[in-house]
Amino acid sequence: MRKSVIKVETVFQIILFIFLTTIILVTLLPFWNIFVISINNAQDTIRGGLYFWPRDLSFESYKTILMDREILNGAKVTVLRTVIGTPLSLLMISMLAYALSKRTLVGRKPITFMFIFTMFFGGGLIPYYMVLKSVHLIDTFWVYIIPNLMSVFYMILVRTFIEQLPKELEECAKMEGANDLQIFFKIILPLSKPILATVGLFIAIGHWNSWFDSYVFTYKPDLKTLQAVLVKILNQYQTSGMMSDQQQLADSAKRMAVSPDSLRMAATMVATIPIMIVYPFVQKHFAQGIMVGSIKE
């Protein structure tokens, strides 16, 4: 009897192991495949049939990508928007969150409603574009920063966290004559580090991954982000089947005779690797942040 129980358990664990290993493979193999193509000799890649191992190891595509002016500039813009946008966004979100965490705040209910409502209803793309145009953000770097400053969902996460903080320190500071501004910067912000780290990482990843605003709201090539450059490369790949030979020839001459495929893969890897590097830190934090949100609901 006991033996059969152990046997059933072992079989159960083996089935689980096979199932979950399949999930891991399905998740990771696509990345691996892209990586393999990116480190294979470009001329050799054209022959096709590259799956799990490079045939002819070469880092030429990376060299080309990392010397490409468009890619370099895209990376610069992306880093800039992430580095500038994230702290500004955190500041505005946490200031509002702190104000709304005060139960006695004048107009707390209508202000909260005003923000929550925007989670359910919006003007849509076209009027949004028109508004950006009329406040002169179209085709400027600030179109990446200012319209992305606020996120109601993250604000609620931060507010929930602030509401759970012990009130004693704050009251003490108030007795000492500190005003709300001082309390916010000297007490609330330092105490909120865990949630700010979580939300900050999410915002930063959002900045890094965002392509639509660059693609649609900017025209100058100097303002294109890395992801928008990738979209351009992707579009070239998709239309290459319909292009004339002449066009293709001109295109490949520009790209220094590196096959579009290897180049595309190398560009993809360049945009992916930074996420993979920060990912372990994010992973440590975010589960906790999501939990706070789900408890709230």
Binding site: L96, Y98, L100, K102, T118, G122, I126, V131
Partner: peptide
């Protein structure tokens, strides 16, 4: 509460420009 309201002000201005102005813009 002047400081608290001051802290909420940037977000309130933001939500009017980037959320409510487009809603009004639906009139187009």
């Amino acid at each position: 509460q002047k400081y608290l309201l001051l802290m909420a002000l940037p977000a309130i201005i933001w939500v009017f420009i980037f959320s409510y102005a487009p809603m009004y813009g639906l009139y187009m």
